[in-house]
Computed example of a mutant assay.
Amino acid sequence: MLKFYVVEDDPAVRKMLSRIVAESGLGEVMGEAEDGSCASIIAVQAADVVIIDLLMPGRDGIETVKALREAHYGGRFIMISQVENKEMIGEAYQQGVDTFIQKPINRLEVVAVLRRVSDHLLLEKSMQTIRNSLRLLDVPGDAAVHSGTHLQQQSSIEQQARTLLLQLGIAGETGTSDLIRIMKWLKTQEQAQQLLPDLPPLKTIYAHVAKGSLQQPEANMQKVVRALEQRIRRLVMQALTHLSSLGLNDYGHPTFEYYASRLFDFQEVRLRMRELEEQRKSSAAKLNLRKFLYVLYVECCSASDT
């Protein structure tokens, strides 16, 4: 059961949200505040999710989210808003808001949003528990069984990678096979108990993937790695352009809402959206390839383990 904290200046809305959380069976509201200035890190740190209003008479939602992130609050933020200003919504995403609930409050929308965030959080916790358990285990077994399990896991992560690439609008593009090989190689590293709190250096990843899959002579490896890196960069830019296009048409599009701020630095998403508005084909956006690859890998693992 998850713990929620509600920051909302309207007592009727606070009461409604508390009732929806309780009746949905998703968890409990463990605290409330009528203004952002009352939502200190001490008050919210035990909450898994903070539901916060965008516009409040004292400290507003964006300022509060920023303050809590700076105080190292690690939970999720769901923002309540009736504002349609794209710059303000973009700023909220940039500060760490996961998703929005629109006013006036609709019970079905609230339950759907809370359930989506709740499912993702519970899955993350479950995966971490499993990984911690595996870290402590060293159980010998039949080699064929281990080999079969390994192949199943490789197949599963490949299937999930293909599904995610389809959602990101880049399935079938040049470089997708390279990206899938990277996901599979990262999985082998984790299976070898080389856990991944962060990625290895990108050049290390590219070199291993190129060497393992292409079997190129060592003399050609530098050229092959450079070509692979360029394909990945172009592919990630295509994903950024696709997500930015979705957000330009609809900030509430579920794919944009979920992946844009996870896979990319949101200021770069906003920049690409402005470029698309101005019909610019090239982009000045700076790609954080490490972030993209790591988050994509985590998403592949999360879905393949369900």
Rank of each mutant, 00 (worst) to 15 (best):
H208N: 15
K187V: 06
M221R: 13
G75F: 07
V113T: 10
D305R: 06
E109M: 00
K125S: 12
R19N: 08
M237A: 04
N106M: 11
L246T: 00
S177P: 12
E8W: 02
Q154N: 08
H150F: 14
F4K: 12
I232Y: 15
M16N: 09
N220E: 13
C300F: 03
V21Q: 07
L166P: 06
Q154Y: 10
I180T: 01
G36I: 02
V236K: 02
R131W: 11
G252V: 07
E277N: 06
E70K: 11
E84S: 08
F4C: 13
E278S: 08
L168F: 09
A207P: 14
L123Q: 05
D305E: 08
E109S: 02
L289K: 00
I157Q: 11
I101Y: 04
S147M: 12
E70T: 04
Y258D: 14
E63V: 11
E8G: 13
K3H: 06
D265C: 04
Q215M: 12
V44D: 15
Q216M: 10
Y251W: 03
Q45Y: 14
L246P: 01
A46D: 14
C38V: 15
L276E: 10
V110C: 01
S126Y: 11
S81M: 09
G90W: 01
G61A: 11
I101C: 07
Q154P: 07
Q279S: 14
Q159W: 15
S304V: 02
L289H: 05
G27T: 04
F4P: 03
M16Y: 08
F292R: 00
V295C: 01
I205H: 14
Q159D: 13
T176G: 02
V117N: 05
R131T: 15
M221H: 09
R135I: 14
I52A: 13
L289P: 00
M273H: 01
Q95E: 12
E87L: 13
K3L: 06
P57A: 05
Y259K: 00
I157Y: 07
V113E: 11
S118M: 11
N220D: 12
H72E: 05
Q189N: 04
E23A: 07
D142A: 09
Q189P: 04
I20S: 09
V145R: 03
D119R: 07
Q191Y: 06
G25Q: 05
R290G: 09
G58K: 10
A143D: 14
L168K: 06
I78V: 12
V236W: 13
S245C: 01
Q222D: 12
R14T: 07
M56G: 08
R272Y: 03
R59Q: 15
L195G: 12
E218A: 12
Q238D: 12
T176K: 03
R272N: 02
S156W: 00
S302V: 01
Q82P: 06
E257Y: 09
